[in-house]
Amino acid sequence: MSEVLERVRGVCGELVLRKVRVDPETADFEVIANGVFLMDTRNGESERLLVSVAADSVPGRARMLIGGLGVGFSLRAALDHDGVGDIFVVEREPAVVEWNRTGPLREVHGDALSDGRVTVVEADLVSWLDSTDERFDAMCLDIDNGPQWTVTEGNAALYSAAGLDMVAARLRPGGVLAVWSAEASDAFTRRLRARFSEVRVLEIPVPRGEPDVVWIARP
Score class of each variant (00 low, 15 high):
residue 165 D to F: 12
residue 151 V to M: 14
residue 33 A to M: 12
residue 34 N to D: 14
residue 120 V to W: 15
residue 132 T to E: 10
residue 85 G to K: 05
residue 149 W to Y: 12
residue 45 E to K: 09
residue 109 H to T: 05
residue 37 F to M: 06
residue 99 W to R: 02
residue 131 S to L: 14
residue 11 V to W: 12
residue 40 D to G: 13
residue 29 F to I: 04
residue 117 R to V: 12
residue 112 A to P: 01
residue 106 R to Y: 02
residue 2 S to F: 15
residue 213 V to N: 06
residue 65 L to H: 07
residue 50 L to F: 02
residue 17 L to A: 07
residue 173 P to I: 15
residue 17 L to N: 04
residue 153 E to K: 11
residue 192 L to F: 09
residue 104 P to D: 08
residue 154 G to P: 00
residue 142 D to R: 00
residue 41 T to N: 08
residue 5 L to H: 03
residue 188 F to L: 08
residue 99 W to E: 01
residue 183 E to C: 05
residue 79 L to R: 05
residue 18 R to F: 10
residue 219 P to A: 14
residue 122 E to V: 12
residue 20 V to G: 07
residue 50 L to D: 00
residue 180 W to I: 03
residue 169 A to I: 09
residue 87 I to R: 01
residue 29 F to R: 01
residue 154 G to L: 15
residue 41 T to R: 06
residue 192 L to I: 03
residue 148 Q to D: 15
residue 25 E to A: 13
residue 7 R to Q: 14
residue 191 R to G: 04
residue 61 R to T: 14
residue 211 P to Y: 05
residue 35 G to Y: 07
residue 146 G to D: 12
residue 175 G to D: 00
residue 63 R to V: 12
residue 201 V to T: 13
residue 211 P to L: 05
residue 182 A to P: 00
residue 41 T to A: 13
residue 99 W to G: 00
residue 126 V to C: 11
residue 101 R to C: 04
residue 148 Q to E: 15
residue 61 R to K: 15
residue 30 E to K: 07
residue 201 V to H: 12
residue 198 E to N: 03
residue 31 V to Q: 02
residue 104 P to L: 15
residue 30 E to L: 13
residue 153 E to P: 00
residue 93 E to Y: 03
residue 192 L to Y: 05
residue 189 T to F: 11
residue 146 G to Y: 13
residue 60 G to E: 11
residue 75 L to K: 06
residue 162 A to E: 15
residue 163 G to V: 04
residue 216 I to Q: 04
residue 22 V to L: 07
residue 127 S to W: 09
residue 114 S to I: 04
residue 211 P to Q: 05
residue 50 L to P: 00
residue 185 S to H: 08
residue 33 A to V: 15
residue 119 T to N: 05
residue 149 W to E: 14
residue 86 D to M: 12
residue 19 K to G: 06
residue 156 A to N: 06
residue 48 R to I: 03
residue 62 A to R: 06
residue 207 P to V: 07
residue 114 S to H: 04
residue 49 L to G: 10
residue 125 L to F: 08
residue 27 A to F: 15
residue 37 F to L: 11
residue 107 E to Y: 10
residue 175 G to I: 01
residue 28 D to L: 08
residue 108 V to G: 07
residue 129 L to P: 02
residue 172 R to P: 00
residue 7 R to L: 12
residue 131 S to N: 08
residue 134 E to V: 09
residue 8 V to W: 13
residue 124 D to Q: 04
residue 198 E to S: 10
residue 17 L to H: 03
residue 208 R to A: 14
residue 188 F to S: 01
residue 131 S to R: 14
residue 215 W to T: 01
residue 178 A to M: 02
residue 183 E to Q: 10
residue 142 D to W: 02
residue 7 R to H: 14
residue 127 S to M: 14
residue 44 G to Q: 04
residue 191 R to L: 06
residue 15 L to P: 00
residue 121 V to R: 06
residue 59 P to W: 15
residue 48 R to A: 03
residue 208 R to G: 11
residue 89 V to S: 03
residue 172 R to A: 12
residue 202 L to Y: 06
residue 32 I to E: 07
residue 162 A to H: 12
residue 102 T to D: 09
residue 51 V to A: 07
residue 33 A to Y: 10
residue 126 V to I: 11
residue 212 D to C: 07
residue 27 A to M: 09
residue 199 V to D: 05
residue 99 W to I: 02
residue 178 A to E: 02
residue 82 D to L: 14
residue 62 A to G: 12
residue 215 W to C: 05
